[in-house]
Design a protein around this nucleic acid. Structure first.
Lengths: 223, 223
DNA sequence: CTCCTTCCCTAACAAGTGTTTGGTAGGTTA
DNA sequence: TAACCTACCAAACACTTGTTAGGGAAGGAG
């Protein structure tokens, strides 16, 4: 993703005796060891539940069954865990969106495909999405997380553009403020991560279907 | 509010020489001095911007133009500031909702009145709403903030009940999952606090009107 | 066997945290 | 004038935080 080709600000000396730092050119080192991903998964779970700042590295270590210091064999810092969780999520998200765009659909179909894809991403990355929701606003101010702001701008361009194209082509109502509509649609989709539980009654596609039915046709009975 | 008649867990000795603690029976002491409300307002602003845990009392003091220790002349603890911010907001919110209910309207009109009232509350208590959004989930686990969970239950009963009554009376579509609809409606209303800025282009009533138009009639052009 | 790598532990450190204590300038009251 | 209250400051305290340094057990490779 063009938005994510930043290099992590690695302030510590890269001893190259541990594998806790990313490779020099962006992505995590090599085949991303299985243990590393396990630890990231539990860290994401705790971050999502307690909030990033309220989570101590000792809590993460407890949950993972090791001691706090041992985490630093795998990762540079607590912040780099957060970084890796968020950036891998965003990479996958944009891969999915780009696939939708490549299909070259009309506005209404594009909107539906984007919404469906979004709920699928929530299903796959629920903790990451929850963290993104809670922390992205004040994280985006930090240089290290500048890619969050970049992603958000690209996000707005994509969704708002789709809505406006739909209005121009007569698929969507013209009497609604497009920016307001964009915010409502965006928020409602992503806030679902706060209550969605994988393996529950509704699978992502069913939630997307109901959501789209509501947004497109409204909840009022047509008279 | 029946939900809020808790007594703050005041672990410290109540010297009664300072006025930093609440009166024995629930609400803040007496006429709630002006200075106290000023400080609470700036605290709420910082909490909303940075997150509660990421905010230090020294930062609040800086913003208010005094030293960290001086805050403890007015308040028991950092946590009690948060408590007072959230509980006063919820009290006012429910006062507004109760006024709507007292009008005895039909389901659709009740929904519209509730949404409008909600956006008015966001206009008045934007920082408190933002804090509530970010922190309420993991705060509700603490005994001191049990009233958050109670309020949430009452909230669900009110909104879900209104939706179901509307379905029963033929005002709302029957083919939508009521609980899913409730979550979408609820989230979209309250997340607005994260981007809403008082004094902007749209006043609360205008936002409520557009939002209701979208939720009730949908964004698609009727064919 | 020895060497090396992987993964973790023990033990500590320095910075930052919420909070307390004692004091004090300035205004109000007696 | 003297006593008192309000609202703050200055300085510290106890504790938690993220992080580091050094060492060691297990296991495969030579």
């Amino acid at each position: 993703m063009a938005d994510n080709d930043r290099v992590p600000t690695n302030s510590r000396t890269d001893s190259s005796k541990t594998r806790n730092s990313k490779a020099a050119h962006g992505k995590p080192a090599g085949p991303a060891p299985a243990r590393r991903r396990e630890l990231l998964a539990t860290a994401a779970e705790v971050f999502a539940a307690q909030g990033y700042n309220a989570t101590t590295v000792r809590r993460i270590a407890d949950e993972a069954g090791l001691l706090a210091g041992s985490l630093y064999y795998h990762f540079d810092s607590k912040e780099s865990m957060l970084d890796e969780i968020l950036s891998t999520f965003l990479d996958e998200l944009w891969a999915g969106y780009d696939a939708v765009l490549a299909a070259g659909l009309g506005p209404s179909e594009t909107l539906q495909a984007l919404v469906t894809e979004s709920f699928r991403e929530i299903d796959r990355h629920r903790p990451a999405v929850a963290i993104y929701q809670k922390e992205s606003r004040h994280l985006a101010a930090q240089p290290r997380f500048a890619y969050l702001a970049a992603s958000q701008r690209r996000f707005e361009k994509l969704w708002l553009g789709t809505l406006e194209r739909g209005v121009a082509e007569g698929a969507f109502r013209a009497d609604l403020d497009a920016r307001l509509t964009y915010r409502f649609v965006r928020d409602t989709v992503w806030v679902a991560a706060s209550w969605y539980r994988p393996g529950g009654r509704h699978h992502p596609e069913e939630i997307a279907r109901q959501y789209l039915s509501m947004v497109l046709d409204g909840i009022a009975v047509r008279t």
